[in-house]
Each structure stands twice: as structure tokens, then as C-alpha cells.
Nucleic acid binder design. Structure first.
Lengths: 255, 255
DNA sequence: TTGCACTTTCCACATAGTGGAAAGTAGTGT
DNA sequence: ACACTACTTTCCACTATGTGGAAAGTGCAA
């Protein structure tokens, strides 16, 4: 009996005609992206529900491709540098980023704040591009990944993503939501912008807007982190962000 | 007979005990990272040497995991957003980046240039972190990936990587090398820094140094792009870069 | 040394992945 | 409108390929 990584068999299985080996491999990658950077084989096997030899073979195959790294000392496994190359090539050819890029430095100079570009990936917001403010704050989190509902940029994006994405994000969100999920989503779909305290520092404010293509799909979020919490500037900041996001969206022909 | 994606069988095969399905899946990811963003199934099948149904199954499995995206209109395939999430989580936990991050803004302010952090991934340099200069030049290439020998940062890194990495990079480099490969490597191992015209614009200069851990392994490269080509400043720039790289390296306990 | 906990290899079994061929789907030109 | 082409997707029998249990290897600690 095999039946890997699937709670209940039968039923309407969306994964029909899909390779179990690939499913298990990405399951391991998922586990490696959680928790500590380097993890033990036996724990990965247990968490994934795979037998130890199977997990070992999968990891070895991924190590050969440099998708996964194995520490020579402890023989623990972690993600490898090849995922960075793949991601970078993806981002380098992503039209939204190219469209936004020319505006970022100008925005920073006008708004005197750090500017970020965020994408939605599964149930996470990832901050993929940034232009740092003139005076850096005490902390600089360079490769931020957060649960989608945790940040303004993420909230705007996930509300505009598909229904399934929304449900996944609500389920994955461990913090408590201020109101009913559907109601929150309706509210998020109303506003064009969002200002909220930065989840990390708590004192700074993050103002976010979305970039939509010609068909109205939300492709990315553009956000500014105001160094001090002076809410009076929010209006001005949002206005500038919206102008840039609109201009960028207009240069995107067909999404 | 199966024998997928392996020119000659027999011999000392390093891939023994390795899953063909995983090998083929990452082969497709590799192909997707080359050439146009969206590619056809048949061409991917041909380029990979896999049969069309097999390539289709693999891609479908990867799409299910959002490692790969399929355009609803053209049904062509491209890399998907999940690779970005994985890469970001890898980078967020990479000690070198955390060690370098605090110095970047200061370097930009002193040197009045854009600061970059680059890693080596297979045979490519990827520029994974950046702090943009006060006055942005005309172009801003946000997610740069280049053949390792093309840029100063890459050259320094690959010379210090393993022998096999060096060979791979020399083989992958399509431009022509100024001298014999081994001689070039010896030279690169001598210098602590490198200044060369920026491969992209041609006019700007890129100055690079490496960050080494306590055991002398090269973990990353730190580089500055000088807006105008005034070589007199190179000495000063390199000095500041080295100071930051040294300080960062010292905070890294055991690599 | 013994003991423990983890990683890696071995091997027989049958599951799960394979390729050819056929069916479905768009897009194009006449 | 039609047939024609080019590509994507599904079907199916075959067996190559991936699987899990058990055993061997490795390293660290007492």
C-alpha cells in the first residue's frame, strides 16, 4: 500500500494523472521551507509521512540537482542555491516588476521612505523588490516572507486573488482576524489602498496599493514604509503610490 | 527502454540511486529558466528528450504544486510563483545576508553608489540584495542573473568555489576568456578585489570583494556600481567594501 | 569499550511511471 | 463555412521504476 501524502483516498481527486514522486518531492521542499534551515532526514520523513528510504532517495535526487543542500558535517538537509537561480530568472522576466522598477527610486526620493514590491505566492506575501530609504531604520529585513493576511500588501493581493487562494490564506493565517472572513474580503475589495502598522516593528506604518493589469487582475502590490508614524502624510503617500501603480499598470499590455 | 536524459549509459554514473522522475522534473525547470518565459509543451519535450506525454505529466504535476504556471490562454508553461517563495525563505535564513545587511545602507551613503550582494548558483551569479544609490542611473536591473564569469563578483566567487564549479562555469561561459582558464583562476585567487566595467551599461564600473567565513570559504560577493567611470575612486571604494566584508565575515561563526 | 540515534544501502515486489497511438482543441488559410 | 495543421491532452498495456522493510554503516556520547 502506497497512498502517500493524501489523507483520504477516492472521492473527487484533483490530483489524478499526477506523479506521486513529484508530489512528494515538492512536499519535502515545502517542509524544508518551514522551520530551521537545516533539518534531519528522519524528521523530514516523519513530517512528510514518507518512509525513511523514500525521503532519503528524494532528497538525494534533489541534492544532485542542487535544489537542496546537504551539510557535510551534520548531513542535514536545507534548500539549495539553485532555487534562488530559478526564482531570479522568474522575477527577471516578470512584466510587472519591469514596469514598476523605473518608478521606485523616484518614489523613495519624494516620499522619503523605503519602497517595496510584493507578490503573492501560495499563502504568503513575498517582498521581491525594494529601494531603501535615505536613512535606514534600525532593522532592515531584506527577504521578507509573511503570511499573506499579516501585511497590508498581502491583504490587498489575496482579496483580489481567486476564491481558493483566499480560503487557503484564511486557513493558513494563525493570527486572529478582526471580523468575519467574507466581510473582511468585501471590505478589502472596496479600498484601493491600505495603511497599517508594520507587522515587524509595530511603530512604522506600511502603506500599500495594488498594480492591476488591463483586465483588472492584481499582479503585485506597491508599498511604502514610513519611518515615523505620522498618519497625516498617509494621504500624500497613497496618492503617489497610486499614481505610480497606475502608470505601471498601463504599460502592461495584456497581463 | 527508458534511459531518460542521459547521453551515455554505463561508466561511473554519479546518479546511481537517484530518481529519474526528479531528474526529469528539474531538467524541465532548467529549460523553463532559459529562453522565453512561456514555452510550449512540444518544444520542452523535444529539448528535454522526454516523450510528450511524460513531459506533460511532469509539467502538470509541477503546475499543481505551483512550481510551474500554465497560461490559460495559450496553455504554455512558465516557472511559477512558488519558486520565489522557496528562494526567499532560503535567502531569509542565509547567515551571510543577515551579516551583510546592516552595512549596505552605510556603504551606499559613503560611496554614493549602488551596493549589491551576489551569490553563486550553479554556473550563474545572482544578485540577491541591493541598496540603490541616491541618484538612480537610467537603467535599474532589479533581478540580475548572469553567467558567472561575466561579472567581477561572479569571477571572484567561482574562482574560490570547488574545482568542478570552476570547470562548469568555464564550459558554460560563451564569451571568450582573455587567457588560459587555469591561469585566470590563479590570478583571481590572488586578488582580494576586482574592478571591471559593468557588463550591462559598459560605462559604469563594478567593484567587487568577497565575504569569507572563518574557514576561508567564499560565501558571497559584495559589490558597488560606480555611477560614473572615475577610476581614481576605485581604491577608496574597494577599501570600504573590504572593511564591510571583513566585518560581516567575522560575525559568521562557523560558516 | 558499549550504546544509541541517525544515515545509507540492499533487495524482492508490485505499484507507479512510461511511450505509442488516438482523441480533443485552437488557430489559420482558402 | 470548410478542411488543414499544430499543439495539447487522454487512454492503455507493459514493465521499468520507485517503493518499504530490514540490515548494514556511521558518528557521537558516556
Amino acid at each position: 500500500m502506497i497512498e502517500p501524502a493524501d489523507g483520504v483516498d477516492g472521492g473527487s481527486n484533483a490530483a489524478r494523472g499526477t506523479l506521486g514522486t513529484v508530489r512528494n518531492a515538492v512536499l519535502l521542499l515545502d517542509l524544508l521551507s518551514d522551520g530551521p534551515a537545516y533539518q534531519q532526514l528522519t524528521e523530514l520523513a516523519e513530517r512528510s509521512g514518507l518512509s525513511v528510504p523514500t525521503a532519503h532517495r528524494l532528497l538525494r535526487s534533489l541534492v544532485l540537482a542542487e535544489i537542496v543542500q546537504q551539510d557535510a558535517r551534520t548531513s542535514r538537509y536545507s534548500l539549495g542555491p539553485e532555487v534562488v537561480r530559478l526564482a531570479q530568472r522568474y522575477l527577471a522576466r516578470l512584466p510587472v516588476l519591469a514596469a514598476l522598477s523605473p518608478y521606485l527610486v523616484g518614489l523613495r526620493d519624494i516620499l522619503d521612505s523605503s519602497i517595496h514590491v510584493a507578490l503573492l505566492a501560495r499563502d504568503s506575501v513575498v517582498y521581491v523588490d525594494r529601494v531603501d530609504a535615505r536613512e535606514g531604520g534600525p532593522y532592515r529585513e531584506s527577504h521578507r516572507v509573511a503570511s499573506a493576511l499579516e501585511t497590508p500588501a498581502g491583504r490587498l493581493l489575496v482579496a483580489r486573488a481567486g476564491d481558493e487562494s483566499w480560503r487557503r490564506c484564511v486557513a493558513a493565517h494563525n493570527g486572529r482576524l478582526p471580523k468575519d472572513a467574507d466581510e473582511l474580503r468585501a471590505e478589502l475589495l472596496e479600498t484601493e489602498w491600505l495603511v497599517a502598522p508594520d507587522g515587524l516593528t509595530g511603530v512604522a506604518l506600511e502603506a500599500a496599493v495594488v498594480v492591476v493589469d488591463s483586465r483588472g487582475g492584481a499582479l503585485a502590490a506597491l508599498s511604502a514604509t514610513l519611518p515615523a508614524a505620522d498618519p497625516d502624510r498617509s494621504g500624500e503617500v497613497v496618492q503617489h503610490l497610486q499614481r505610480a501603480a497606475g502608470a505601471a499598470g498601463r504599460t502592461l499590455g495584456h497581463g
